[in-house]
Design a protein around this nucleic acid. Sequence first.
DNA 1: TTCAAATATTTAAATGTTTCGATGTTTTAA
DNA 2: TTAAAACATCGAAACATTTAAATATTTGAA
Lengths: 104, 104
Amino acid sequence: MYGYFYYLCAVMMDNKKIEKISRALSDASRITILQQFRKRNDCLYCAEVHDILDLTQPSVSHHLKQLVEAELLLPEKEGRNLKYILNEEVLSEYISSLNDLKGK
Amino acid sequence: MYGYFYYLCAVMMDNKKIEKISRALSDASRITILQQFRKRNDCLYCAEVHDILDLTQPSVSHHLKQLVEAELLLPEKEGRNLKYILNEEVLSEYISSLNDLKGK
DNA sequence: TTCAAATATTTAAATGTTTCGATGTTTTAA
DNA sequence: TTAAAACATCGAAACATTTAAATATTTGAA
């Protein structure tokens, strides 16, 4: 439907993106945040993250921002609350890129 | 043969390890190094890395050290040369840990 | 044994990251 | 409209990372 080039674009992740996602994953607090998605119902509220991590609100905000900028999390406003959804598509693309590093 | 606990140890990767590998992957030069393993014959020589990256020898040495400390690369001495082998097992465990972040 | 090649370590500068306190913005509820 | 709850941004301190120059170590060859 969209041709070969489009297909490649949808599948491949460039090195800048791999670097950015890796950096987002290179922090204990952010790994903990991502692990909460399995325990909760596939979404997480900003306030819940604050309860889980022993960090101030600005620090939590900073970590969530890194994850959003890496597109691992999708933010959704709900009134004055902020809900995050795990972006499984980006996570899968990242995993694919890592799989490509393996031979054959 | 080794029981349940041993099995878990072999499969699970703790958060400190995930953090360390992610950090090792969060640099353009180090991603480039890992990508060379598919192009070469599953092993890479230190000197080849120096040719590929536009960095001084100490910088190359630093990056290779990060990858070795994350156990993504296994170093093998060959006379005064150093050969690296991609540690596919660790890479696979890391990928499994990331897959576990996804729901169900 | 001595020299040169290959790699590692040390040091220091530049830059980036993490964290918190203070403050700003947006939104709901009184 | 005002107060307060939820989140973001700013500024600064502490710490970590990247890089290169200088130097050290290890090893093979002469």
